[in-house]
Design a protein around this nucleic acid. Structure first.
Lengths: 202, 202, 202, 202
DNA sequence: AATGAATGAGAGTTCATTCAT
DNA sequence: TATGAATGAACTCTCATTCAT
């Protein structure tokens, strides 16, 4: 969709659309979608408004692209983990751990995701929610599989468990700091552990 | 429910500031703080802008008032529960259940809280975060008490557990619907159960 | 027009209209008529808006009152000086000196006078300008008298001399400070001296 | 007179920023800075608000630009006159005469200068006052030079003389009318003559 | 004599977007 | 591929004034 470099690969001069997306991500996470002006984005990216509107149809489109990127990434990873040939509890633990790690590694996207979705146009919101639902359904089916196999408590509502866990994941952006005492993997380990303990048969 | 300051008195003619707060809450939850104009709020409340600015210093002040209300309510309830004379696991379960129920009963406030805090002025944001922190600390001390008493797993980081659980609570606004299949108490029961299972000694 | 004290003469409690005029004068001089709100005036005077509108028909009226006060004062003093039985050059010198002294003693009024006259309603502006013109004419007639008597240069246009001199007087408010190196009388002496030298026959 | 930035070129289609400055000058002089709305300015210039804010950061900026223009003009002219190789009294007379002529030729700027400086933001006010002070100092040094050379009375305070004279100059805007009986040069001649007589050794 | 809630009009400013070049 | 001038609508907030009490 957008070329990788301009000119011929000079260091530090990523292609214009990439630079725009990167700066938009940073600014949206920092001060919110509505509080970030198109002017600020283009200034940060070192181009003019015309350039932005050459590559993106609207400010809204930028946000949609950011969503697309993170959703694609997480869906791919979940698919890979779910398809493994290991016991369900292990796959659930890995899936949980993995989504925490990638959420932290892309903390700006995580922040934007759950703060700004309402600022997308209705149609785009619908598309994003549908993709998100598919992701949740894949995660939920791991829980259902574990219940069917007798690993997890049968009295739990799998959809509620998913909402419970992803609430925690989405919330990461509001408290996690890269320079805090915890590494991404430490948080991931503990969150995964809490989830497994909460669903496992005693 | 709302004090009648001027004339009136019949239901439906609540005092102007109360009406403004109620409509602002509804609109902020519905379309977000930045997407709600002062004009829309005063129209919904049936007054003019001048009236709003007679009672509130700024749009920002309205949001702050809304936060204050819900924080006061939840803090009071948590204090009451924590002070009970029952075993810690029971108190934690009740605190967890209660915060879910009141979050659902005030779902508009919950939605606003989670989404709009970044749109407060820096000073007000600081004040709100400080109050929120005190609330979390009180909740955390229940977990610490349970660990000390040998009820809960000692290897857990209490602060991480709090962030884990309140992520789930704050997230309620993004998926819960009053006309869905689950009552507030059903969700509360399951969330509380998940939390307790995740922290209890096996 | 307005009583002098309320209650019975307690110190520091001047009557409401006087207090309003005094605070309005101070504020208009400090930040200009348009930049001073009625709210600020009533707060400074320790009353409410209703009280102000009880005594004055409009914000405009306050300004008109302030003008009236200073015009009356200066007209009275000029009349007294002009009527004296001394040689014209002496009377002109005293009139010039006196208007400088009273302008400095009422520096707030002086500042307001030449900055805010355009903010009066057209009718009030007309009235004030007419009074001011009468004052200038009286001053001018001193110069004409001096020319007729052979004291002053006959080739000067008396009206231009008046505008020349009163420009200097009106300008006092922009540079004179009570805590500066010059007393009101020192400035008055020098201004008067400059005027007399500029008109006298060599 | 005004550079044509976009298209156009024919007289009457001056560039947008020039047109905005011209109309703003006219309107500020006519009804004062605070009483002139941005809406009125853009309507007079035949553009929209967006265009104004494309070129000027604020209404305040417009005023600052107007000040800058007139200060630059007068400073240049005074520098040229002061640098001449003629006797000091002649140079002072010419400087005085020149500032009167240019003040009358730019009477709108003169009116604005005198009345609206207090409505500039504090920082801009400081900048303008500093420039004005440099101008006054240059003028004052002419007087000091004349005193040192024995042309002017030694007992006069040069700074007071400057304030005396520039009061008269700034005041021109309040009484001079182009369609009145006096030409700019007639006024300039008389003002200059009055100044010289007031300072010269008898 | 005085209150203060409420009005309604208008203020300056911001902003996403368009389009001729 | 990219510019940047210009639009037009909407924004938050301020204010002098009124009026029932």
């Amino acid at each position: 969709m957008a070329r990788t470099v301009t000119g011929g690969g000079e260091s530090g001069t990523a292609a214009v659309p990439e630079r725009l997306l990167a700066e938009a991500t940073r600014l949206f996470a920092e001060r919110g979608y509505d509080r970030t002006s198109v002017q600020e984005i283009v200034e940060a990216a070192g181009v003019t408004k015309g350039a932005l509107y050459h590559y993106f149809g609207s400010k809204d489109d930028l946000l949609h692209e950011i969503y697309g990127r993170v959703l694609r990434l997480q869906t791919e990873r979940l698919d890979a983990i779910a398809a493994r040939d290991t016991p369900v509890p292990e796959r659930l633990a890995e899936a949980a751990s993995d989504v925490v790690v990638t959420s932290i590694q892309n903390l700006d996207d995580t922040k934007i995701f759950f703060r700004s979705i309402h600022q997308l146009s209705p149609e785009k919101q619908k598309a994003v929610r549908a993709e998100r639902r598919r992701y949740h359904e894949k995660f939920r089916s791991l829980i259902e599989e574990g219940q069917a196999a007798g690993h997890f408590r049968a009295d739990l509502r799998p959809d509620l468990v998913v909402d419970f866990f992803f609430g925690s994941v989405h919330h990461l952006g509001t408290w996690y700091h890269a320079d805090g005492p915890l590494s991404a993997h430490e948080v991931a380990g503990e969150f995964s552990d809490l989830l497994l303990h909460s669903v496992r048969r005693p």
